[in-house]
Simulated assay, not measured.
Amino acid sequence: MQKRFLIVDDMHQSICVLLAEAGIEAHYEPHISRPELLKIIKNYEGLLIRSKTDVDRELIDAATNLEVIGRAGAGLDKIDVQYVESKGIEILNAPEGNRDALAEHAMGLLLSMLNNIVKADAEVRNWIWDREGNRGDELSDKTIGIIGYGYMGQAFVQRLRAFDCRVLVYDKYKKGFGTKNVEEVSLAKLYDKADILSLHVPLNEETRAWIDKEFIMNFRKDIYLLNTARGEILPTKDLLELLDSGKVKGAALDVLDKEKFDKLTEEERNQFIDLFSRKNIVFSPHVGGWTFASYKRINEVLVGKIASHYHIEKEG
Rank of each mutant, 00 (worst) to 15 (best):
W129F: 12
E85D: 07
H31R: 11
N227G: 02
K39W: 14
D121H: 13
K279Q: 15
A62E: 03
Y28S: 11
L240V: 03
F272Q: 02
D9R: 13
A307H: 14
N299M: 08
V157T: 13
E259N: 08
L197D: 00
D171I: 00
R50D: 10
D121I: 04
N218T: 14
G88K: 03
L242F: 15
Q13K: 12
G176Y: 12
A188I: 08
V287A: 04
G145E: 08
V201C: 04
T179D: 01
D80H: 08
R297L: 10
L168Y: 12
N98H: 05
Q154V: 10
Y224G: 15
Q158S: 06
V55Q: 04
I233Y: 00
V182N: 09
S277A: 10
K39F: 14
R4V: 06
G23E: 12
G145N: 10
K119E: 08
A252H: 00
H31W: 04
E138A: 05
V169I: 11
G136S: 00
W129M: 01
L242A: 13
K39N: 15
F156G: 02
R159Q: 12
C165D: 03
Y83G: 03
D77K: 00
K193R: 15
A74S: 14
F283N: 09
I24T: 04
D61P: 04
S140E: 15
A103T: 06
A103K: 06
N204M: 05
H311Y: 14
D192V: 03
D244P: 14
I144C: 09
I69R: 03
D61R: 07
V182L: 11
I89G: 02
V287M: 11
T143G: 03
I144A: 09
K279H: 14
I32S: 06
G150S: 11
I273F: 12
S14H: 00
A74H: 07
T53L: 10
L275F: 11
E205D: 14
E184R: 10
I49L: 02
L264Y: 09
M11V: 15
M113N: 13
K260R: 12
S51C: 01
V68Y: 05
I117N: 12
R220C: 02
T64P: 06
Y44W: 05
I49Q: 01
I117A: 14
D130I: 07
R71L: 04
E241I: 07
K314Q: 14
V167M: 08
E268K: 10
Y224Q: 14
K174P: 00
E259F: 06
L226N: 09
V124A: 08
L111A: 05
L139T: 08
P285S: 06
G148I: 04
D171N: 00
L59H: 00
C16W: 07
N115D: 04
V201H: 03
P95I: 05
K305M: 01
